[in-house]
Simulated scan of single mutants.
Amino acid sequence: MSDIGQRKREHIDIVLSGSARHSAPAGFDAVHFQHNALPEADLGSIDLSTSFLGRKLRLPYLASSMTGGPDVAERINRAIAEAAQQLGFAMAVGSQRISLTTADRSGLGPELRRLAPDVPIYGNLGAVQLVHGMGLAEARRAVDELGADALILHLNPLQEALQQGGDWNWTGVEPAISALTRALPVPVIVKEVGSGISAAVARRLADCGVAAIDVAGAGGTSWAAVEGRRSASPAAEDLGDIFRDWGIPTARCLSDVHAALPLMPLIASGGIRHGLDAAKAIRLGATLTGQAAALLPAAMNGPEAVIAHVGAVARALRIACFATGSRNLAALRTAQLQ
């Protein structure tokens, strides 16, 4: 296994252990819907479908990017792809850096499109890699290897700062994103990895021409804590704990970014626990809600487990619509809050 592959396998193990979560919440417990005791709606007929970047989805759900070494990535991605095809949600793969720089595709090849021909699949590269040896050619390959509908660029400056051998020089990343959005034939989505995107940064990304933003706020996995746990150095582990709760809570990111950019398609990830959180995220401005760590145990256990997990999210979301008198997601976006 390559050094990158080993690191990503360690990431999986740490996330599964539950030892690297933000201790601060994502902020959804402070959001309360006003109950509608006379909903005038049929629970079984509530429409959870949505459109995102020109593609219709039966559920407003994204299986968010997950890391994973060569021995588990294929299992994870196949399980998600099969479930996504059956239920009609979108999926994003983890970083394609391994498949672009080694002979190991780690489950990041055309088989995913064969398993999920009818749903959006999003590729993934680290934005900082655009100034460290990767560019348009690699981005095109990342898209072509998957038959991807869009490319996600992830922003992870805090993680890189705490990672042994991480990329510390982020000079030039913003213009590189701008150049890529102009040249790549598919939409570019930009996401954080758990520290959130502020309204000010979102405006800069909009000026770069990105098609959508995943706010990926604080409240779920803390990649500062993950890197601290990975380290063999007590000092580095202490540093990870110092920055464990660094970031903007997901609910605040959504409110602020949606207010600043009301027409920008948004994905809410970072501490989405269940379908009620998903409903609140949609009410705050999200088009899709994403889960990674919460979905990971199911993804490790196969497509049936993923179907069960996402089905439970959908059931709670549908009940939230019903209890607010919302017959579809458009109505949920205007539901009364307390």
Rank of each mutant, 00 (worst) to 15 (best):
A298H: 12
I319H: 13
F28W: 14
E145P: 01
A294H: 09
M66F: 06
P303W: 01
T67P: 09
H32P: 00
L332H: 13
L337V: 08
M66T: 04
E237W: 14
A224H: 04
A79S: 15
Q86C: 01
N77L: 04
P110G: 04
N169L: 11
A24H: 08
G302I: 01
A281R: 04
E145V: 00
I282Q: 06
A281C: 07
K56P: 00
D3H: 14
L153A: 08
V186P: 10
P70A: 15
N301G: 02
I213C: 05
L158Y: 07
A37M: 06
L284M: 10
T324D: 09
L276V: 14
S95F: 05
E82C: 13
K8E: 09
Q96F: 06
R7W: 02
I121K: 03
S222G: 05
G219K: 15
I213Q: 05
W246K: 08
H35D: 05
L125N: 01
V119A: 02
L329M: 14
L295Y: 06
A260E: 13
G217H: 11
S65N: 06
T287H: 12
F33Y: 03
A139P: 09
N169W: 01
A176V: 07
D207C: 04
G219P: 03
V173A: 11
H258R: 15
I80N: 12
A92I: 00
D118I: 06
G325R: 14
N328H: 14
D47P: 07
R229C: 14
V306F: 03
A150G: 06
E237A: 15
L100N: 08
L146V: 07
A224F: 04
G172T: 09
A308L: 10
L115I: 05
G54Y: 10
G219I: 11
S195F: 12
A260H: 01
R182W: 00
P70G: 15
I189N: 03
A150H: 08
C253R: 05
E40S: 10
A24N: 09
L112V: 01
V306M: 07
R58I: 00
A116Q: 05
L239V: 06
H22R: 07
T101G: 01
A316T: 13
A298C: 00
Y61P: 01
Q159M: 11
V257M: 09
A212C: 09
R78D: 10
N36K: 07
V72M: 05
D13V: 01
L205W: 09
M91V: 04
G275E: 11
A312I: 03
V188F: 12
E174Y: 02
L153I: 13
A312N: 14
M66C: 08
R105P: 00
S198E: 02
S106N: 06
G126M: 02
